[in-house]
Design a protein around this nucleic acid. Structure first.
Lengths: 203, 203
DNA sequence: GTCTATAATGAGATAGAC
DNA sequence: GTCTATCTCATTATAGAC
């Protein structure tokens, strides 16, 4: 997007740091050190910390759009697409954990209005894609239609997001049920698909 | 807990600010202003910003324990208890939104180790309580038993947490499906209970 | 483009009067 | 206990040489 190679070097270092410690928890000096350049050099590429932060968001969001395109090209029946979407969604969140964390951070901030609009925009794109998929499943009679697709999408997305952001906490639990995140995601999808009730019981 | 009235005044102001903007996003001056006292006065009650932050966490977590006790005293069949738990859990998250945000923030921070242990501890208590409830439901044959209660708990908790932290973003969506958070929570609980499949369809 | 040096401001924390 | 005044240091940002 017309960014010099020196600029992307900065963006990559900044993305990781912002994701880990948040906007205020990172200094320009730290970013410069991690990028292997001087602090003043950053200001040659970005005129302020705020501008750098927004650039990081936009930069990280480019990959997001690539994935959204991929998710739309999934084959199979609508229900198969849905299961596939869930798995791919979760894989993508983890593969791009920095930007995922950034978005979740923005949603926790109360009217910081730095990148909140940007974050909510990506969030909305994800959501509407999932919603469209669920609508198709409903039209084909593959899933129940007495509940609006918005709440279905929220339930599915919520489970995946929760799994991502709570994963390290879940690891400390006794019982070791949460060993592989992708496997856990599949289990929970099946759970949501068939429900808690005993008619989903395999025995 | 042996805290002077002046101290709680500070804690209340600090809790709100930390929840909104995070640890690094809040200055001692802001806290002092919001509490209506001088900055130096804070240092009379807490010897550092870190200590204040930890005190805020512990202070806010007291209410949490009260609720956990309440949740354990729910009447009715196990399944009714479960539905009740879900509703009360969500109500509580919202009623204590500051501490909820603080905990979610800690989970997003990568090895900040400030209050992460504390946050994960509360998280674990919630989780094990929900898990125990699900075990009871399984033993009584009220819900399927081919899936471990840990994943069931994660699915249920995840939906509620997601609803809480994404609520403002969900409001901006077209369609206005998300009007009342408690109502949405009930819909999603029913969804998880009966599943996506058409056997849950009312028509 | 990249650096060193430095300004200008704000942060956490302390001293000491009342 | 609460304040004003101050210290010290880190931060964002700029100036200007190379």
């Amino acid at each position: 997007m017309g960014l010099s190679s020196g600029a992307t070097q900065i963006l990559i270092a900044a993305e990781k740091l912002f994701a880990k410690r948040g906007y205020d928890g990172v200094s320009m000096q730290q970013i410069a050190s991690d990028a292997g350049i001087s602090k003043a050099n950053i200001y040659h590429h970005f005129k302020s910390k705020d501008e750098l932060y927004l650039a990081v968001l936009k930069y990280a969001l480019q990959d997001m759009n690539v994935l959204l395109a991929e998710l739309q090209g999934i084959d199979g029946t609508s229900t198969e697409q849905l299961a596939h979407f869930s798995v791919e969604h979760q894989k993508h969140i983890n593969a791009n954990s920095s930007i995922s964390r950034l978005i979740l951070r923005e949603m926790l901030d109360g009217s910081s209005s730095r990148g909140q609009d940007l974050a909510e925009q990506v969030f909305a794109e994800y959501f509407s894609l999932l919603r469209a998929l669920l609508c198709k499943c409903q039209e084909r009679g593959e899933i129940r239609h007495d509940i609006d697709p918005d709440h279905m999408a929220a339930a599915l997305a919520g489970m995946n997001v929760f799994l991502f952001q709570s994963w390290s906490a879940l690891q400390h639990f006794p019982g070791h049920a949460f060993k592989n995140q992708q496997e856990s995601g599949k289990i929970m999808f099946e759970l949501l698909f068939n429900g808690f009730t005993t008619h989903g019981d395999k025995k």
